[in-house]
Amino acid sequence: MEKRFDIEKHLREDLELSPPSPDFSKKVMGAIAGTRIAPASRSYLNKKVVYGTGLFFLLLIAAAVVYALPSFNWSAAGKFRLAVDVSTLDIGQYFNRKTVNCLLFLNVLLGLMFLDKYLVRRDRAV
């Protein structure tokens, strides 16, 4: 019977890993000598803040959708009618240019706060 080269067997028995230079571990220990272990992300990531931010953006999207509804041409959708007559709602009174600017400003502010926290954390880690 013809012998076969058992690749599976040879991979298990003969495959080798390449060693780095002999002083590799010393080099790494030297590199980490001045560094500190960063605090676990679970210790500084407040879930309430994460959920709060999520809720804020959801509300923002919901507000934009509600604002867009009155301008929609419902007659194009056939005889379907909403239970509430949205055309009577004057959402523009609350959701105007001033409100949008305020929300944008708030977004920029949140972005800057996030950047500041990130930079502070990075500096501490170094």
Partner: peptide, 9 residues
């Protein structure tokens, strides 16, 4: 070095 810094994670 990265593993050491993020070991708490």
């Amino acid at each position: 070095v990265k593993a050491y810094r993020s070991l708490a994670d």
